[in-house]
Design a protein around this nucleic acid. Structure first.
Lengths: 232, 232
DNA sequence: GTCTATATGTAGATAGAC
DNA sequence: GTCTATCTACATATAGAC
């Protein structure tokens, strides 16, 4: 099963390669949008071909099997988020003062939220796609390989900045924070729904909830320690 | 499309009705297990029939269309969780002392976590199924109808017991708490993975993480208010 | 209520002409 | 690199004999 690599630069600009690159991008973009909205099993390769306005066979040619296409879409942008997180962590570590818990949480959640509210709808689709796959054991091996190494670095930094607590509870609190972040990107409908806005279609925006999310996660990580009394 | 109702009591115990009830239960149980593990789009009616060891047509007869079957499975147990939550809230309200935030969070999360660790694997499957569908706008109308009315009552009680904060932030904090709860039931792999236990298959149990989850949510809801400084 | 048989459409994947 | 045509398997759903 031949999967097209990013067309090799043979010094050729004869239109074939250019068209190939363009088709490949159309396929990956369409897959990104559809997987984000309907999930892996909710999308057919035929739908992707139609969305990309390319023939069915082009999806297979540029994307390989369905599962290979999915992983390619996920991997394509991973560095856009990870680079921002990594640089922010490096900057904080290079300072004289150690980073605070609030700074660390904001630095980890921020780049992903930025992606989720980007002007480019294609990047927004990627954020929703990541949210959609992060809840299932099925995709954990992929999530682990792509996102866990950097998450471990943040966890270590949080352990120094956060409350005294055993490592497993802290890891859980960090994962709960990520779950809240992903949920916010997946859907805001319930936040409005619980307020009685069911008939209204205006859900709160991600941007409006960013501060609430970060404060929630910081408070939660603090709460996972033993600093505050468990009131009764 | 005829969907079998819970067999009417015509004073008959001639074996047909008994067998029908048994077949119906087998179909719903098999659907519950498979939907929980693979999601709505990841399961075929043929798989359900095979898992239930009934002929293909029996699934349609007892469950209707695929989507009707899914909703039936969801609705079947909703009261098992909601009744426990509702009774706990009523007990707290009947007391002289008002409930604390910690009590309210524990009372809301507890019955669902109990379901997720029940001795009956069928109830555990239900808990995972609920976790799996709660992240997607697609199923929000169903979630809203079944779970939001009681969640609103809890939100009101939390508003009285929790920090002074605008209602939308508080609703967000409660929804984040629910997201963390659902994530814990969906998967614990990442909690262990971030600790470097990747090669180990032993993830922390839900029961072991129950306290960490509740403390995280209580701290998070407090943090969503303005009680604690945002350190810098 | 049960179950075989089947109607009707779609799935993922690829061969082979251009 | 593109795209038509097609292979094989599987999907949902139901008719109709028992």
């Amino acid at each position: 099963m031949p999967i097209a690599e990013p067309a090799s630069d043979e010094g050729v600009t004869d239109g074939r390669l250019l068209r190939g690159q363009s088709t490949r991008k159309q396929v990956l973009d369409a897959a990104e949008r559809l997987f984000a909205e309907f999930g892996f099993d909710g999308v057919s390769i035929r739908q992707i071909a139609q969305e990309a306005t390319v023939p069915l066979a082009s999806v297979g040619f540029h994307g390989g099997t369905k599962i290979e296409l999915f992983k390619t879409v996920i991997e394509r942008r991973v560095n856009e988020v990870s680079a921002a997180r990594s640089e922010a962590l490096a900057r904080m570590k290079a300072r004289p003062q150690p980073p605070t818990l609030h700074e660390l949480v904001a630095a980890y959640l921020g780049p992903y939220l930025d992606c989720a509210v980007d002007d480019d709808p294609q990047r927004r689709a990627y954020a929703r796609l990541v949210a959609r796959m992060s809840d299932h054991d099925r995709w954990y091996p992929t999530v682990r390989d792509l996102y866990d190494p950097l998450a471990r670095e943040y966890l270590s930094a949080i352990a120094e900045a956060g409350p005294a607590v055993d490592r497993e509870r802290l890891s859980a609190a960090f994962v709960f924070s990520i779950a809240a972040m992903l949920h916010l990107v997946s859907t805001r409908r319930r936040i409005g729904g619980l307020l009685g806005n069911e008939n209204v279609d205006r859900d709160p925006s991600i941007e409006a909830m960013r501060g609430a999310l970060i404060d929630f996660c910081v408070g939660g990580i603090r709460g996972a320690g033993f600093e505050q009394p468990n009131d009764r």
